[in-house]
Write a protein that binds this DNA or RNA. Sequence first.
DNA 1: GTCTATACGCGGATAGAC
DNA 2: GTCTATCCGCGTATAGAC
Lengths: 207, 207
Amino acid sequence: MSVESAQSSTRDTILRETATLFAMDGYAGVSMRDIANAAGITPAALYHHFRDKSELYRATMAHAFGSKMSDLPTVLFGEAPIEERFTGFISWFCNLMSTDVIYARLMQREMLDGDDERVHFLTENVFREPFKQTMVMMEEIAPNGDAHQLSVFVFGLIFGYYAFTPTRRLQPGYKLEHDDPERAARNIAHLVLNGLKSFSAVENAAQ
Amino acid sequence: MSVESAQSSTRDTILRETATLFAMDGYAGVSMRDIANAAGITPAALYHHFRDKSELYRATMAHAFGSKMSDLPTVLFGEAPIEERFTGFISWFCNLMSTDVIYARLMQREMLDGDDERVHFLTENVFREPFKQTMVMMEEIAPNGDAHQLSVFVFGLIFGYYAFTPTRRLQPGYKLEHDDPERAARNIAHLVLNGLKSFSAVENAAQ
DNA sequence: GTCTATACGCGGATAGAC
DNA sequence: GTCTATCCGCGTATAGAC
């Protein structure tokens, strides 16, 4: 909300560089010298902007996870039928994951390496809103289903699809069009929408 | 196949310890001193068994990814109807992921950090066979669908479900039974089986 | 706000005794 | 096969000049 877009301050430059570096090599795999190098300053200068490496890391996460996931697509809140809202959401999420590799990798790293505090931060700032909205849709699609678990399936499916990318490209049957996020989104939405139609009758419903 | 189960050699001890250490903290996050400490020897002794850290890492992966995934459940190859084979497979995979956290984390790390060679190794030794079998099942369930992509959905769904675990536990609606792999497997199998029934008619089929 | 210079422990790795 | 001792560059971090 504050006025900070005037020009690219050194701090912003650093945070942009660290997002890439940490995404690619992880916290322990990136040195302060690497960071200084990428930002075009000396290591000592980094300590003018951040107390230490761990604070710089936290600042990087706060910067990277700022707003993207709360910019949910407008179709979600429109009057469109549930199929359209759901498909629009999946499409948006798939495009985000396939477009912003840095973002996707940082998410994966936080889930893999984050302590309680970091996972909490990630959950609050990245997944809270879209997860809630997904739960609302799940309740509409499968009124007697377990909305929480079904939402986790949706996130897991998309998240897993992209996490699995390096491996899936080596599997039999791989074609270039499998990398098209629109196509993947369409098929994911199709799978889930049809799969859930029958979930109302499942025995462990509405827990 | 060789006789190596006689007693726990130092080499095996090291590899058991490194599997845990690398799974928890990643390659860059674990030092040779850490490893030596965990194995109860000095750092110098490590170099008697392995040329350097990267060879020790590769050996750890080879050891960890040895046989588990090729021990596919027998139900897969039986005469049972497809629903039962598929559900059995999902159940086996979910149990594996939720039981062996080390294994699951090493998989995630390799996909996130692995270079071409490492991802290739992971794909060949871990995912090749189960992926092939899943494709066979997908062709049976949705004869006109895209068996490769549908198989990726299945793996992504399970993989994503477990990768998402730290976060899902903080989401609204979380209950303890969501951690039960049998329950998750049942619902995943249900979702996929029902979702795929209608996939035969989808427009981008059989590519 | 960024630099040079530097502290100092930890990193991977080796030599050679036992 | 494991040890002690050691090398040396790289790690984070600080002091103090400009």
